[in-house]
């Protein structure tokens, strides 16, 4: 076969691959746009500034949890404890600031560090105690944290937080909620972290092939501990935003939020097998869930039915992903 022929064949293959890359990169975004279009047609109130800002605000807690969740999932792990950590973090913050009357900054510090500390514990259980899978270690801490959250105040809620604590979840800059601005800042930070730092790349490497990563000199334990600590920290941060939105902390806060966070990450195109997934995909995943919930609320669709729809979307999103991968593997 002649040289020229080989080249044109390669070009065709290249073009095809470029097309697939675009689809795989923007698949979730296309989904979000289609969804928005459908809901705009169905409900006149949907595409109004007021409602878009509602979506931004409503998505922020899940968006913060989801970006934390992305890291364990990238390493082929999972963090089931984030919902409970959120509750424990805000209960502790409530005790420090409301019940004990200490400075709000100290409360914020407590909130974030309780999350991070439990996240660190998740990492230690996984790497040093060698529990077989993070599903188990985080299932354990999920129950432990929820239990403590209920015990500390005898299950009573805490209300009346100082303004400084409420700021993130409550305030607006112009029409834009501060909580969503926080989401944007956090996501930019995570994007840089995952794509432009050594640790970020190691996270992908560990998820893609742990043995290859280890033999390439990567300290897997260290990276995993960082991953779970960050995930826990994000639970604390999401809690802070939640307290701002509702001016109260209650021990059943964040119940089953880990599942919404996982859903956002998966809808955003990350692979449960690890090594594949992006920050922007996760943001779109979180937005898709928020847009669906909001849109269905506007259409007065019952909550039971909303669950069904979101379940279907998760399956559909992953199914599209599976089709895509099956294709790219055959080629």
């Amino acid at each position: 076969m002649s040289q020229v022929a080989v080249q044109t064949k390669n070009e065709a293959v290249e073009k095809n691959r470029a097309f697939k890359r675009i689809i795989s990169k923007f698949g979730p975004l296309i989904g979000l746009i289609l969804l928005t279009a459908v809901l705009t047609i169905l409900s006149p109130k949907f595409l109004t500034i007021n409602n878009v800002m509602n979506i931004a605000r409503q998505s922020s807690i899940n968006a913060l949890l989801a970006i934390g969740m992305l890291l364990p999932i990238l390493t082929a792990g999972i963090d089931l404890s984030v919902g409970s950590l959120l509750a424990l973090s805000i209960m502790m913050m409530g005790i420090v600031t409301v019940n004990m009357g200490m400075h709000p900054l100290l409360g914020i510090l407590v909130c974030l560090s309780v999350g991070a500390a439990f996240g660190w514990l998740n990492g230690i259980l996984l790497t040093k105690l060698r529990l077989p899978h993070p599903f188990i270690s985080t299932l354990g801490t999920m129950n432990i944290a929820r239990g403590i959250a209920l015990i500390v105040t005898g299950a009573a809620p805490i209300a009346g937080f100082p303004y400084m604590i409420q700021f993130l979840g409550r305030e607006f800059v112009g029409p834009i909620p501060v909580s969503f601005l926080l989401v944007i800042v956090v996501y930019v930070f995570f994007h840089i972290f995952l794509t432009r730092t050594q640790t970020g790349r190691y996270i992908y490497a560990i998820g893609g092939n742990p043995e290859a990563a280890r033999l390439s000199g990567i300290n897997i334990d260290r990276v995993l501990i960082i991953v779970y600590t960050i995930s826990g920290f994000m639970a604390g941060l999401a809690g802070l935003v939640m307290v701002g939105r509702v001016n109260s902390a209650f021990p059943l806060a964040g119940l089953s939020y880990e599942l919404d966070a996982i859903a956002a990450v998966i809808i955003g195109g990350a692979s449960f097998l690890g090594g594949v997934g992006t920050v922007w995909g996760t943001l779109i995943g979180a937005l898709i869930i928020a847009v669906l919930r909001n849109g269905l609320n506007l259409l007065n669709v019952s909550a039971d039915f909303q669950m069904t729809v979101i379940g279907a979307v998760i399956i559909a999103a992953v199914f599209v992903d599976v089709l895509r991968q099956r294709k790219s593997k055959k080629a």
């Binding site: 790349r201 490497a205 092939n209 290859a212 033999l215 990567i218 594949v276």
Partner: peptide
């Protein structure tokens, strides 16, 4: 099994051990 990250690009694979 032990050498490559199959889902990563070539530049990622080539520079992985010397970040």
């Amino acid at each position: 099994g032990e050498g490559l990250l199959l889902d990563q690009k070539l530049d990622f694979n080539i520079t992985m051990a010397n970040m």
